[in-house]
């Protein structure tokens, strides 16, 4: 058993908790729950526990620093009622967050903390899309996420 490890766990309806195990001690940090938070957290925990070679070659499990950064970035860019991303592990311990809508695709490749390649293609006019290399300013990506929420917001308002 690895005594030095970290995991996220849901402890109730109104809080979400990150548990850091250091030796036999635990540090618990609570945070507000978001609609997508539980699903994303569960997926990140799964991907961090992938076996070596999960991809049929020499793929590594998702690194904790990548997972933690991805979650922190999501909290900054994705509203509480925003759409949950699909999460794909990379072979290098990296990961990619993806949103695919009928007329728009967004992919955020988290290569490491503060190393993100963001890509969006909207409509058929520019099939290569727009690609950004980001470190700590995700304002543009937050705007992308808001844009894909607009149809859902309009539907909710009409209902």
């Amino acid at each position: 058993m690895n005594a030095n490890r970290q995991e996220w766990t849901s402890t109730g309806s109104d809080t979400h908790t990150r548990v850091i195990h250091i030796g036999f001690h635990r540090a618990i940090v609570s945070r507000p729950t978001r609609d997508w938070h539980k699903e994303v957290t569960a997926t990140l925990n799964e991907l961090a526990a992938l076996p070596r070679g999960w991809d049929g070659y020499n793929g590594r499990p998702v690194r904790f620093d990548c997972a933690y950064f991805a979650l922190s970035m999501l909290e900054a860019i994705c509203p509480a009622d925003g759409p949950a991303p699909q999460i794909v592990p990379g072979s290098n311990g990296d990961l990619q967050l993806e949103w695919h809508m009928p007329n728009e695709d967004i992919e955020l490749h988290v290569r490491g903390p503060n190393k993100v390649t963001a890509w969006r293609v909207a409509g058929a006019t520019d099939p290569d899309g727009e690609e950004l290399q980001l470190t700590n300013d995700f304002t543009q990506v937050a705007a992308w996420i808001r844009a894909i929420m607009e149809p859902a917001v309009a539907d909710a308002a009409a209902a």
């Binding site: 991907l47 991809d55 049929g56 793929g59 592990p89 695919h100 809508m101 009928p102």
Partner: peptide, 12 residues
């Protein structure tokens, strides 16, 4: 080789 972990659902 492709793992099921590498499959996503598109906008359609």
């Amino acid at each position: 080789r492709i793992s099921d972990r590498q499959i996503v659902t598109d906008g359609a």
